[in-house]
Design a protein around this nucleic acid. Sequence first.
DNA 1: ACAAGGAACGAACGGTCGTACTATTCTGCG
DNA 2: CGCAGAATAGTACGACCGTTCGTTCCTTGT
Lengths: 200, 200
Amino acid sequence: MSKGDATRQAILHRGVETAARVGLSGLTIGELAAATGMSKSGLFAHAKSKESLQLQVLAQAREEFIDAVIRPALTAPRGEPRVRALFDHWVTCGRTRMPGGCLFVKAAAEYDDRPGAVRDQLVRDHTDLHETIAHVFRTGITEGHFRDDADPAEFASALHGVMLGFYHSYRLLGDPAAEAHARQSFENLLDAARPTSDTV
Amino acid sequence: MSKGDATRQAILHRGVETAARVGLSGLTIGELAAATGMSKSGLFAHAKSKESLQLQVLAQAREEFIDAVIRPALTAPRGEPRVRALFDHWVTCGRTRMPGGCLFVKAAAEYDDRPGAVRDQLVRDHTDLHETIAHVFRTGITEGHFRDDADPAEFASALHGVMLGFYHSYRLLGDPAAEAHARQSFENLLDAARPTSDTV
DNA sequence: ACAAGGAACGAACGGTCGTACTATTCTGCG
DNA sequence: CGCAGAATAGTACGACCGTTCGTTCCTTGT
C-alpha cells in the first residue's frame, strides 16, 4: 500500500493549500482533482465523500500546524521562552503563508454557524489549541515567570486574538506594520502577566 | 419607485442575514430568492449579477454596522468614554448576533486570498474602520486620557484583534467566558495606553 | 380610465457540483 | 512471469449554480 498512500498524501497536501485559498466549503472535488492531475472519480475514490474529504484535509492541516508551530515550540525551555517560541513559530507560519494555520482561521470563520461534523471537529481542534496555549502559559507560572494569579485561559484567548488580528491585517490588508503590531501586542500581554508589576 | 425599493431593501436585509451564516460566496441567488419568497429570476432582476449582489449585501452590512456601532459610539463624550462606547456597541453587536459585524469578519476571512471587486471593497471597508478607531483613539490623546506617544494605528490593530478573538470564541466555541476575556483584554489595552503608567 | 413602464414570474440554457456505477490500468506478491 | 487486488479513469446521473429571455402582472402618472 505505498502508491495509494503517496497519492493520498499529495491530495491532502494540495487540499490544504487550496482550502486555505477558497475555504473548506469552497474546496471542490473537481478543482482539487485538476490541481493534482487526476480524474474526479479517481480522487473521489480516496475521499469517500465531500465531508470526509473536508475532515481529512482538516486533519492534515492540523498535523502540518502541529509540526510547524506546536512541536518546535515545545523544544524551547519551559516558561516564558516556550511561550515566545510558540508565538514566533505561529507568526512565521502566517508570514510564510504556510497553509495549515491559515486554513484553521478561515475554516473557523466559515463554519461558526454551520452545524455538522466539520464544525464539531473545528471546535475540538480549537479547544485543544486553546488548552495547549493555556498549559504552556501555566508552566510559565510555575516557573515564576508569570504572576500566580494570572489566568491561563484568559491569556490563551488574548494570544489567539492577537494572532487573528495579525492574520487579518497581514493577509487581507497587507499591512506592513501587521507583524510589528502583533509583536507589540504580544509584549504587552507578557508585561501584563509578569510578576514585576505593582499589582499585588 | 417605492415598491421596487422596498423589496430591494428586504432582499438586502435578508441577504446580510444569510451571508452571515454561509458567507458571501456561499450566498446563493436561489436560496436567497427562496428566503425572500420570490423567484430566482425576480430576484436576479434586482441584483444584476452575483458579484453585484455580493457588493450590495456588503454595502448593506456596512450601513447596518455603522448604524449599530459607529454612529451611537460617536454620541459619547470625546476621549476614553467614546472608545469605551465603541467597544461596548461592537461587543453587543456580536453578542446579539446582529449580522452586519459578523458578516464582515466572515467575509474578510473568505476573501483575503481571492482577488476581485469584493476583496477590494472589503479592504476599503476595513481600512476605513481601522482609521475610524485610530481617530477616536487619537481624540483620547488630545483629551489627555491617553499617553502622547501612544500609537493610534497600533491601538486600532490591537482592538480589532480583541474583537476577532471575541467573535471567534463566542460564535465557534460558544465560550461563556468569551465576553469577560474580551472586556479584560480591552481594559488591559486602555491601561497600557493611559498616561498614569510609570513609563515616561 | 388608460396607457406606459417597472416588477415579478416560469422556463430554459450551459455548466459544475457531489456521487454512483463500470471499466481499465497498474502494482506487488507468489 | 502471472494473477489478485488496488488504483485510477470513464461515464452517467440528478441537483443546483448563475444567467437569459419572453411573458405576464401590477403600479403609477395623467
